[in-house]
Design a protein around this nucleic acid. Structure first.
Lengths: 237, 237
DNA sequence: TTTACAATTTAGACGCGGCTAATTCGTGAT
DNA sequence: ATCACGAATTAGCCGCGTCTAAATTGTAAA
């Protein structure tokens, strides 16, 4: 109810922590990871973490990492909601290219009022996910995380459906769009090269070998309940 | 061509100077006027003026006032273009009320990219004025200031057309909308009270007595070339 | 012409968010 | 059990934009 009056910088840090927590598995997020993500020095991160800890938005365990508190996660989700509504609006209503919308939204999200947020939501028909397939948090701070895994973790031989594509890297996004790997696309995992080699997949009738950066950016779900047996079918080409 | 990299604060000051120069008649704008307009101390204004003067955006004549240079005016018009395109978009495409759009645009204008500016412009069909009747500067920094005067300066007995309504005061704007004094409305000036008394006008078949703040916020043009003779017709009620 | 006052500028300080350099802490290797 | 090293924190600084208090200046009145 009370306005937290979080500054733009604070919001960026909260968003970063939320993102890193989603991305990796570990709970505690290290200072270095945040620093790298935000292109900022480690000292700046520590400084901000102490500030956010005082505000009760973050639990800071010195030398061991930080994690969002309930209030912090709520604040992060509010920013994320702004971001994804904007992204959706920019793409669908103003024709901003898929791979540019993220950067635009990053700048606009901090200037979006609650009223305008509601208007965008309504104009879009209350969407539940953005153009990249990422779920849009609801107004009350709920987010439905679809049960998806990274394509990197998909079993060879299975056919999966793309649910979500990370929107941070515009070039990667453009590449994926070119391949036809957009949310909803069906991808057949053919084989995994040895020693962290490329993942061979078939999508839209064509085969590709995808590197690690790519397969970690794409989230998929085993659509047709392929009874996740360990069938190591390796049908290349 | 070169990015001036003007900060948000700098843009706000440039906008303020431009506005005050338009509003009043004098060329040189005083420190106090800027300070009041931006709700900032006079010392802060002087500080910023020196900074802007160094950047060549402002001509600072110590103790005598400042005025925008060509570069400064260009920068101000760029911000103003962002502002008015946003205002127009918010009103017509998202249904934001007339009197709220200004505040929203004030926050969004600094985060609007050139690309998005172009998309808004196109989506709106390349408008030349915003919902308040204010002209929208063109991309190349041209602005067509329509030959209008303040309603306060209109001669009693004439009938004028509202061309523009200042958008800074939401409450005033709501009041004017209620009266039907929107751009395009025809207003008959009945009489002017003595000693800066209220201006009696007829609009939409009804008569009103308007205070100074109101008549200075409304710009009008003598539409039907009413041969501006000094006919002091005083027909009240 | 002098003077008083209001407007303006200067001086000095603060909070924010950032940085570099130095220090402290955890932990994996010995 | 120790040690070395990388990660994290602390210390101290900077620029921006703001402020209050103390000069300074322009000008209008006497």
């Amino acid at each position: 109810m009370t306005e937290s009056v979080t500054s733009q910088a604070e919001q960026d840090y909260l968003k970063a922590i939320y993102h890193l927590a989603q991305d990796g598995e570990r709970e505690k997020i290290g200072t270095a990871a945040i620093a790298e993500w935000l292109a900022v020095s480690a000292a700046s991160v520590t400084h901000m973490m102490k500030k956010l800890a005082e505000r009760g938005l973050v639990a800071h365990h010195p030398y061991r990492g930080v994690e969002l508190t309930t209030a912090g996660e709520r604040a992060a989700l509010e920013v994320l909601r702004h971001h994804r509504l904007l992204e959706t609006y920019l793409c669908t209503q103003l024709g901003v290219p898929w791979d540019q919308a993220h950067r635009e939204a990053d700048r606009l999200e901090h200037a979006l009022s609650e009223d305008l947020e509601a208007r965008l939501d309504q104009a879009l028909g209350f969407p539940t996910s953005d153009p990249h397939g990422s779920p849009i948090p609801t107004k009350d701070g709920t987010i439905i995380a679809p049960p998806s895994r990274k394509l990197a973790a998909a079993m060879p031989g299975t056919t999966v459906t793309v649910t979500e594509v990370a929107d941070e890297d515009a070039a990667l996004l453009a590449y994926l769009a070119d391949l036809g790997m957009v949310p909803g696309a069906r991808v057949t995992v053919l084989a995994k090269g040895p020693f962290d080699g490329p993942l061979h997949v078939r999508v839209g009738g064509r085969d590709y070998a995808l590197g690690d950066a790519v397969t970690r950016a794409v989230h998929v779900t085993t659509a047709t309940t392929t009874t996740t047996t360990t069938e190591e079918v390796a049908g290349a080409e």
